[in-house]
Structures are given as C-alpha cells and as structure tokens.
C-alpha cells in the first residue's frame, strides 16, 4: 500500500500526511484533557515520549511484535497519566499547568540519562513499521471513538466539568474521578502517537519531546477550538503544514506562533471552529421528537 502510494505521491507530501495523522492522534488526546475537560496540560509531549521510548525499546531490544510494542507504549503513557493525575488533578488552572510542565521535564531528563534509550544521543534504527495505512486507520478509529465518547454520559460530564465544576458536582458528577479518566485516556493517545512517531521517524531523542512540542500540541487544540473534534483536526493540519511552509524562516517560527495566537485570541477567542454552532445546523434538521443526533461541538 505504502509502496503503491509513494509511486503516485511525492514522498515529501507523504511524509507530511503521516505527520498530520500522528499529530491528529496526539492532539485529540490533549483535546480530551484540555479542550473538553478544561484541565490545562502543558506536558503532553512527556506522555508522548513515554510511548515512543517504551515501544521503541520493546521492539528493538526485546523483539516484541510491532503492534504489541505500540499498545504497550500507549498503556505505559496511560499508566503514568493515571498515577500522576490522581494527585495533580486536584490542583486548579495555573498550578496544574506548572505541574504538567515539571513532570514532562522530569521525563525528558530521565531519558537524557537512560542507558537503554541511548541517553542524549537517543535511539536510532527503530524499525519503520508505521505505515500510511496504519496511521490513517488509527486516526479514523480514534476520531470515531472520540466522537462517540463526547456524545455520551461521560463526554457530557467532561464538558460540564470544564463549564462549571460546582454545578457538575451538584449533578452527581465525581469530578476528580472523571478528570483522572480524561487524563488517562488523553495520555493513552499521547503514548499511541509517540509509538507511531518513533516507528516512523527511525530515530528519537529526548529533545524531540520537550516543552516546545507540548506547546505545539496545545496550539493545535487552541487554534482549532477547545473541545471540538473537527477544530482539533483542523488545528493539527494547519500547524503541521505551517512550519513546513515557514521552513525558510525557521528562526522566526516561535515569533510567528506567538503572533498567531495573539491574533486568534483577539478575533476568535474560542478557536477557529470552537464557536461554530453545530446546533444551528442541526436545528434545521431537527424534527419534533429528536431520536438520534450528535452532541455539542
């Protein structure tokens, strides 16, 4: 399939399409935590690196089959998400942001000193098992399951926590438990994306998963629209393409990102698709008794 594709598509574009797919998976994980549930995480790349290193070590040094390594990487990230979430999700806003930054830094420093991971040099020669077909199949699965989750009892509870925690609790929502659940599920996706990334890039280093990567992922969620699946996808596409286009002015990328966010805050504070009223469209089709329809955003 991939060989076939590369006959028709320029490998450069193929590569960008792969990165877009991987970023969509990563960003949808963060969207669940920050966009939907409203828990500002600035260390998503840390969980991504857990998935990347775990899966790479398993398949390179222990001869694990690719799919098993991929799953184990995601599970490892989820496990850390769970145990870090329990104490930290009691914190609010800025504090949570700081703790997640700190945690991602700890992981990075850990891998800088981690012998099996090649320390600062990183790991190279990771089998390139991540195929175009696999990435985009997983994107579709993740999008479908995500959409289903958000239009369910738990998904609505996640949004409710973001909107008003006290009212959410008064509705019987165990907010701490559900925040941990969102954080664990989001970390799982980070680990999955990390594993795909490692098995696509051939080599990984600790600095690939630094603070800048976390911010890049956060930008995708914020740009597209917090809590919106189409928005997050759009944000991932734009912010994967932009750096490629801006390659010539690479030094100014940060400046450009900053300016972009400021402009966004002014003109579309809810993100590009964050306040697109899905309801307005739905209303037109809604009959007197509503049977099946999709949820908010």
């Amino acid at each position: 399939m991939d060989a076939l594709l590369s006959q028709y598509i320029d490998p450069y574009y193929l590569r960008i399409l792969m990165l877009i797919g991987i970023n969509i998976i990563l960003a949808l994980g963060l969207n669940l935590i920050t966009g939907v549930t409203g828990q500002l995480s600035m260390g998503h790349a840390g969980f991504m690196s857990l998935g990347a290193y775990t899966s790479a070590i398993l398949s390179m040094q222990l001869g694990c089959p690719f799919f098993l390594s991929l799953l184990a990487g995601a599970a490892m990230a989820a496990l850390f998400g769970f145990f870090i979430g329990i104490p930290t999700l009691r914190l609010e806003g800025d504090y949570l942001a700081m703790v997640t930054i700190g945690f991602a830094e700890i992981i990075r420093v850990f891998f800088l000193n981690f012998e099996p991971g090649g320390k600062a040099v990183g790991m190279s020669g990771i089998p390139q098992n991540t195929t175009f077909l696999l990435v985009w199949t997983l994107v579709i699965i993740v999008v479908v399951l995500n959409a289903k989750l958000l239009n369910s009892r738990l998904g609505r509870a996640f949004y409710a926590i973001r909107e008003n925690e006290i009212a959410a609790e008064a509705s019987g929502i165990n907010t701490t438990r559900l925040k941990v659940l969102a954080f664990t599920a989001g970390s799982f996706l980070a680990g999955l994306g990390g594993g795909l990334y490692a098995h696509y890039m051939y080599f990984i280093r600790p600095q690939d998963f630094g603070f800048m990567k976390s911010i890049e992922l956060l930008n995708m969620v914020v740009l597209g629209g917090m809590g919106s699946i189409p928005g997050t996808i759009l944000g991932s596409v734009i912010l994967t393409l932009l750096p490629e286009m801006l390659r010539v002015v690479a030094e100014y990328r940060l400046l450009f990102y900053g300016a972009l966010l400021v402009i966004l805050m002014i003109f579309r504070p809810n993100g590009l698709l964050g306040d697109v009223r899905v309801y307005d469209i739905k209303k037109k089709f809604a009959r007197k008794k509503v049977g099946s329809w999709q949820s908010s955003n």
């Binding site: 609505r156 949004y159 909107e163 009212a167 008064a170």
Partner: peptide, 8 residues
C-alpha cells in the same frame, strides 16, 4: 446561576 454556559 451556575449553568454550563457553552452547552445547549
């Protein structure tokens, strides 16, 4: 009032 403002 404490509603979930950005929900329907």
């Amino acid at each position: 009032i404490r509603l979930f403002n950005k929900l329907s």
